[in-house]
Every structure is written in structure tokens, then in C-alpha cells.
């Protein structure tokens, strides 16, 4: 398994790759790795003259250009002005549904998580939702969630939004919306396809040859360890410090 800093750098780089082509990405509060991925995409695009990327980070003054209150990010999504967003989940199931509410009964859940936040809405409206959860275990990646905070697919209503990929500490999955099913795309260095199947509670498709998730190249590492850490420090000082100290 990679050391913590290298693991995080791999996740950040993978997120930047998943975001390729987006114009506006929104990042929720307390999400330093997704925010870093968005910042890496922006820096890369600048370096090679591609279209500028707008980043909205909830909870950041510097990366927040909204002026109409809490509702604006939701209105913006409804207008089709947000291309990508990140969601996690205490549970994520094989159909892409997520549970941010809890397990062990409802309403008196014996394990209670914070709540659904804006997921029930944003999952319908943001075209490229990246499911990001570092823990890769059968208790997180379950056959069926106990509570559907947000549904991945709803054939009964037209929608532009939904899951694009699922990224964990161990692997990257792509999501097929037509079949409502994940497919393994790559496994991170230090893990095998067997590790992934041993730790995934739901069924998914596996290709004959499972590639390794590509590690960041030198130019990417230079950006990650320089400019991106500086940019991250404004919103996530503790995370930026821990990455710098691990150098």
C-alpha cells in the first residue's frame, strides 16, 4: 500500500482526470481531496491553454462567487450551470443509490449520520456526480442501502444528473446509467482485483484485464506539491499542512 501522501496524491490526480472537460465544479464543505482534484484540473487547463475551470467550494470565501445566499448553488444546478459535484455516503449500493441518513431502523436509527444534505436534489441535476468515499469495505459498499437519500437512476422522470464514477482508497469504478451498475475501471497500486472483490458488498462488472490506476507524473506532482497546496491552505489549512509535513 502507498504511504498516505502518495495515496492522497493518486486520488487527487484521479479526480482531476474524472473532471476533464467540465466548466464549473462545485465542492461540498469538508472535502479537501475533491477540492484539490478540481484545483489540479484548473491548473492543468491553464498550463495547456484549455478552457478555464470555475470552482465553487462551500465554506470558502475565496472560492465562492455566489451572492444570492444558500439557495444559489441549488438554483445554479437547476439551470444546468454546474457540471460536476461530489457525494459520499455512509452506504453506497450496487445500483448507485446513497444513504447519508443512517442504519438500524428509521426514524430511531441506531447508527445515525448527519442527514441527506442536498443529495436528493443535486443527484438529479448535476451531470457528473463523482461518488467519493475513502473507506472501501463491505459495510460501506452494500448490495442495497438501508435508506435512499438520493436515487442514482429514476426511469420515471427525465434527468440530466447522476453518478459518473465511484472512487475509493482501493479502486475506481465507472457507472453505467442504462444498467444502473458499476464496472471496475482500475485498481490502485498496492491492491489487486481480488482485494476489491473481497471488500465490495455489491456485484459489479470486472474486465478481463484490470489496469492499475495511473500514478501522477512529475509535472502533476510539481503542481500538487506547490501551487495546489498553497491554494488548498486557504480553505483546508490542516489538510494542506499534513500534506506538506509528509514531504
Amino acid at each position: 500500500m502507498l504511504p498516505l501522501r502518495e495515496q492522497r496524491e493518486l486520488l487527487i490526480t484521479t479526480i482531476a482526470d474524472l473532471l476533464d472537460g467540465v466548466r464549473h465544479v462545485a465542492v461540498g464543505a469538508s472535502s479537501p481531496i475533491p477540492a484539490a482534484g478540481a484545483m489540479l484540473l484548473r491548473a492543468r487547463n491553464e498550463a495547456c491553454g484549455k478552457a478555464a475551470v470555475r470552482i465553487s467550494i462551500l465554506g470558502s470565501a475565496q472560492h465562492n462567487f455566489f451572492t444570492n445566499g444558500t439557495i444559489e448553488i441549488f438554483d445554479c444546478a437547476a439551470q444546468g450551470r454546474i457540471d460536476a459535484f461530489f457525494l459520499g455516503g455512509g452506504q453506497i449500493d450496487g445500483s448507485g443509490n446513497i444513504n447519508l441518513v443512517g442504519t438500524g431502523g428509521y426514524p430511531q436509527s441506531q447508527v445515525r449520520w448527519p442527514g441527506s444534505f442536498g443529495s436528493a436534489y443535486l443527484y438529479h441535476l448535476v451531470p457528473r456526480v463523482i461518488l467519493f468515499r475513502t473507506e472501501h469495505s463491505p459495510r460501506v459498499l452494500v448490495p442495497k442501502v438501508d435508506f435512499v437519500s438520493a436515487a442514482a437512476t429514476t426511469p420515471e422522470v427525465p434527468r440530466r444528473g447522476g453518478p459518473h464514477a465511484l472512487l475509493t482508497n482501493m479502486a475506481l469504478f465507472a457507472f453505467d446509467r442504462g444498467r444502473a451498475r458499476f464496472g471496475l475501471r482500475s485498481v490502485h497500486p498496492g491492491f489487486s482485483a481480488t482485494d476489491v472483490s473481497d471488500n465490495t458488498g455489491f456485484d459489479y462488472d470486472t474486465p478481463d484485464i484490470v489496469p492499475a490506476t495511473p500514478a501522477p507524473d512529475t509535472a502533476t506532482l510539481d503542481l500538487l506539491r506547490g501551487r495546489i497546496l498553497d491554494e488548498l491552505a486557504e480553505t483546508y489549512p490542516a489538510f494542506a499542512n499534513s500534506m506538506a509535513e509528509a514531504a
Binding site: 436528493a120 436534489y121 437519500s149 438520493a150 436515487a151
Partner: peptide, 10 residues
């Protein structure tokens, strides 16, 4: 009225 939500256990 509000967009989305359909499919959620909410």
C-alpha cells in the same frame, strides 16, 4: 414545486 428528489426515501 421543486426539482429532483423523486426516487429518494425522503
Amino acid at each position: 414545486p421543486i426539482a429532483g428528489i423523486i426516487g429518494s426515501d425522503l
